Structures are given as C-alpha cells and as structure tokens.
Amino acid sequence: MDLSEKIEVEDSLPFHEFNDSIELLISEAKNENNILQLIELKEQQTEQKYNVERSTFLPSVAAFGKYELYPEYLSALEPRWAVGLTLSVNLFNGLRDYAKLQAADYLIEEVNAIKKNFEDKISLLVNKNYKDIMNSKEKFIRNNFTISLAAENLRLNEKRFETGLGTSLEVVDVNLAYEKSMIDSKSYLFDYYSNLTELYTTVGNPQKVISILKNKEQ
C-alpha cells in the first residue's frame, strides 16, 4: 500500500449512553438469576422442615364428636351423641427430636450462607462489568480530545510542509498518529459495547443492549 494513500476509518456503531444505576442492576441480577431462585426455594423448604421438627415439641390436641341418626339401633349403654377432646405431650424421646431440630436449624444456616455467598458473587460480577464499562467509556471520551489534537497537529504540519518549513516524513508521522487515535476510538467503543453485553447478560436481560444500540427509551 502506498504510504500516501488515505485511510478512512468508518463504522456504523455510534456511542450511546446507558442510564441504569449499579443498585438497580444488582437488584435485577438477583431477581432474574435462576440459580438464586432455586436457592430461595430451598430456603423455603428448610424453613418448613424446621417448623415441622419444632411442632414435635408442642402438645398434640385432637377433638372428636358424633351423633347417631338412628338411635333405635343403639344399645342401652351407647349415647346418642358424644364429644371429646384429647391432649398428648411427648415428655421424653431420647433427645432425638431435639437432634432433628438442631439439624434443621443448621440446614437453614447452611442455605442462608450459600445464598449470601452467591448474592455476593453476583454483586461482585455486576460491579466488575459496570467498572469495565465506565473505564471503556472514559477512554473513549478522553480519546476524542486526542483525535481533535491529532487532527489539528496534522493540519499544522501539512501547512508547514506546503510552505517548505516541514518535511514529508513529519507529515507521515503525524498522519499515522492521527489514524492511530481514530482506530483507538473504535477499539474503545467496541470494548464499551462488549462490556455492556457482559453486564446485561449477567443481569439476565441481554436484549437491553439492542435497545441501547438503537438508542431507544430504556
């Protein structure tokens, strides 16, 4: 390729801002995560198991009643109607019920620890993706100033070359610096949308990236 050939760096990927806060993203990621939903279901099951084991320490109460519609078939000793109430309490069961209650309690603590650990990992991942987006955005915006300076420097060196005060090598070097800043801009923009895709995939709403690319209301 001829060194004097002009390189046009173009694409159809403009920069669009996204407006979701980190708090909203973390909340949405927790609500939409399937694994976390399964853990929460397990948490409900362990709480129900604990309530069942705890009920063994409570007295059992039962009520009964009857009424005979055909009293002619009753003997002289049988009443036509009767009601009653029974109450039973297990005073000692070799501490087996207490051991089951403790096991159910430990299971609740284990599930809660797993849930908290998973929520912390989700938060860390969302925070990492969010910071990567902010870094890419900052590089892209900062590079726009670099492009402006490089373009002005190229213009000045071309004028110097036209008036005989500069050399063609200087113009080539400045032009290469300008083209590099243009390529860097596209690279930072690519990183921005790549990190944005990673973020909304983690959140569980990858279609949101399409809305941002099309610059629709979010």
Rank of each mutant, 00 (worst) to 15 (best):
L165Q: 11
L107S: 08
L41Y: 03
N31K: 13
I122V: 03
E138G: 10
E47W: 05
E109S: 14
N153T: 10
E198W: 01
N157T: 09
N144A: 01
W81R: 10
V172Q: 11
Q44M: 01
D120Q: 15
L101N: 02
A99P: 04
A99R: 08
K128R: 07
F161C: 00
V83I: 12
A151N: 11
T201W: 11
N175W: 06
D184E: 08
Y188C: 07
Y130Q: 07
Y188P: 04
Q48T: 03
S211F: 09
Y200Q: 02
I26P: 11
V52W: 13
A104Q: 00
E78N: 11
E40V: 08
N215L: 09
S75R: 00
S55K: 14
F92Y: 10
A103C: 15
D184R: 01
E162D: 02
L77C: 07
K131T: 10
L107W: 04
E162G: 05
A103D: 13
L87S: 06
F118C: 03
K6D: 14
D20S: 08
A103E: 15
L107F: 06
L85F: 13
L77A: 12
L58H: 08
N129T: 05
Q45A: 07
K186Y: 05
N51Y: 07
V83S: 14
S55F: 12
L149N: 13
L38K: 05
E152F: 06
T146W: 11
V209T: 01
Y50R: 13
E179P: 12
L77P: 05
E68L: 05
Y98P: 04
L213W: 06
L199I: 00
F190A: 02
Q207D: 15
P206R: 05
K186P: 01
I39G: 04
Q102A: 12
L165M: 13
S168H: 15
D132I: 04
N90Q: 15
N175H: 09
K100R: 09
S4L: 08
N33F: 06
R96G: 09
H16R: 15
F64D: 11
L38I: 03
G166F: 08
G94H: 02
G94L: 02
L125V: 01
S148K: 14
F140T: 02
A103L: 15
V52A: 14
T56L: 11
L87R: 00
T197Q: 03
I210F: 12
A62F: 08
